[in-house]
Design a protein around this nucleic acid. Structure first.
Lengths: 343, 343
DNA sequence: TTGGTAATTGCAACCGATTTCATAAATTTG
DNA sequence: CAAATTTATGAAATCGGTTGCAATTACCAA
């Protein structure tokens, strides 16, 4: 097995001190250009690779960004991560990733690991049942930047990257109303999470602004899983009068709900129009194609990572921006286009 | 900002030397139990956290596993990663992740970064156009374990985690034949990649074993994207005689091909039966539901990571296993069940 | 020639934990 | 009770870069 080459070996090779070698390798301006070149050449020739621990130990930073996600294998989250990885990689940062699997317990453990791994910054989407963000206090105390995205929490020391969930839900609901729906049901997730409370707000506001009554019974809170969609469908079928529109806070759940309704003989969109949320690929596969909100995951990942790397590289000196809101649009497809409006 | 607590601070606090503190914290047997307990208590009380760089620098390992994937945002890959993360996390390893975006160039750069980050081991799924694995030589030379999964390459020093693609494709094709198909088309990906050549082999063997002719014209090599599926459908529509079965090496492509065929008035499965590959969630959404091969991504991630951590923790002393083959099954759904066989 | 400044380079002290070797104290054995 | 072990602890070297400060040389103007 090859022995590892150090700057001391290089120093011996070129007849300069380790100090100069170190400086040359870091492109320090106080080193003669010719010296630098010679050192580069010899280093390359000897197959030198820098020892990041030694460097990190001395410099007190790691060039590593921690990411904590609820779950990796969802279309949205993996898109986010793809965007993050691209930006982080380009900026010279490594990404270390862990999933909370939706529990606060694991999120706390992960935060601790990240803290011990001394990440330079943290990108977090909160778990389903995270009721506090106390476990990030150590980061705040030590001035390690934490950026929340999608599922965020308010904190004066952290930035949040979100879409305007209220507005998006408002658009979605308004669209249903424009299609003639007068009795709309909203299927949502855990109402402790900002995204779902905001979407509920948008739903409510749209009703009110269109002089439609808002009834608590029209909101079905679920865990947004496959089964939840089916159960919600059953619940809807029992309602009297039967709803004529559904706004679901998640595509996957929406699709399963739709399937169950179709099996029960409901015509979509004519009997019931459906709108989802996220623009998951399945929305273009299900029949009829699902109207949904385009939630730009990849872009969100890029923005979150860029925000962090800029801050770390002191490109953005102060952390002025507290919230970044990305645009999100309604994508209209057949699942919500009632016939009477079609030509 | 809090100052960082070191073992020296603790040493001062308890009146023992840093040596003893270090040993106590690592649960070394040569430290008195009472001493240990006192050190634990004080460490906790002072809010001590170990400095991983110092430790890594001295110990020459990082407790970090590098993962290089072609692309993060695919259902299969993110499932794999979810499985990996779970196992690695439990075994006390961090995962650093990078994507090659399908190009060998970026894969080489990523490998270099991982090498410099001194990962303890590497988990790799090769990029589309990786024609050699020379860029992993430094790892092999230094004895750093590299495990390939899904898209693998032969190397005497590395383990591969795969499914039996030949057998899976054989099953899929045989199933189509059993359904009465006599003129089957195979849509595949880049034939330089093991998974696709193997699937092609399975396709071929199944034909031969059933006394059906294998024609080169029946194999459509594509990039398996959404558009590729549509283009392939157009190509199929022009064929004379028209095929009665399609075996696609990827669900996403299969679904789009199916949609295009349906639009052209083809009845599925009666005119043409379709089988996909991967068991992506969309297979249960498309109509008719797509018959496919269950490719256990999550499990593959678990197995790959476990294999690596066991090796690193010297639980499996020698690297005996060179290839691990996971089981994969055919899941039959409506897209391939021709009427005449239905009751 | 002299004083002064800029350009290069090196010494040595870190960063914080681990580990070899030696030592002191406690315990067992003959 | 002396000798041989065992148990518990510490001093100091080490891992491989980085960096404050000092030293040397080169260069320029007066």
């Amino acid at each position: 097995m090859d022995k590892e080459i150090t700057i001391y070996d290089i120093a011996k090779g070129v007849g300069f001190s380790p100090t100069t070698v170190s400086r040359a390798l870091n492109d320090h301006p106080a080193v003669n250009k010719k010296t630098k070149q010679r050192i580069y050449d010899i280093a390359a020739q000897m197959g030198y690779r820098s020892n990041l621990f030694a460097s990190n130990l001395r410099r007190q930073h790691t060039n590593t960004i921690g990411v904590i996600v609820p779950i990796l294998n969802s279309n949205f989250q993996s898109s986010v991560m793809a965007g993050m990885e691209k930006v982080a990689n380009e900026a010279g940062y490594n990404l270390i990733i862990s999933q909370s699997l939706g529990t606060m317990e694991k999120e706390i453990a992960n935060a601790k690991t990240m803290y011990n791994s001394r990440v330079d910054g943290l990108l977090v989407s909160l778990s389903h049942d995270s009721e506090s963000i106390e476990h990030f206090e150590p980061f705040f105390k030590k001035g390690i930047p934490v950026i929340f995205y999608d599922r965020v929490a308010e904190h004066k020391q952290s930035t949040s990257i979100v879409i305007d969930n209220v507005q998006a839900a408002y658009k979605a609901t308004t669209h249903l109303i424009e299609q003639g729906c007068r009795n709309i049901v909203h299927i949502t997730g855990n109402l402790k999470i900002n995204v779902y409370t905001d979407r509920l707000k948008g739903f409510k506001y749209a009703l009110v602004d269109n002089d439609l009554p808002y009834k608590k019974a029209s909101v079905i809170a679920t865990d947004l899983t496959e089964e939840a969609g089916i159960k919600a469908a059953e619940q809807i079928l029992k309602m009297d009068p039967r709803p004529d529109g559904i706004f679901v806070a998640n595509d996957f759940c929406a699709v399963n709900c739709m399937k169950a309704l179709k099996q029960a003989g409901i015509a979509i969109p004519d009997d019931i129009a459906v709108v989802g949320f996220n623009n998951d690929p399945i929305t273009r596969v299900v029949e009829p194609n699902l109207t949904t909100i385009d939630y730009p995951g990849y872009e969100m990942g890029e923005v979150a990572a860029r925000n962090l790397t800029n801050y770390l590289d002191a490109l953005s000196d102060v952390n002025i921006t507290n919230t970044v809101t990305l645009r999100s649009d309604l994508i209209v497809r057949e699942s919500s286009l009632k016939k009477k409006l079609k030509k």
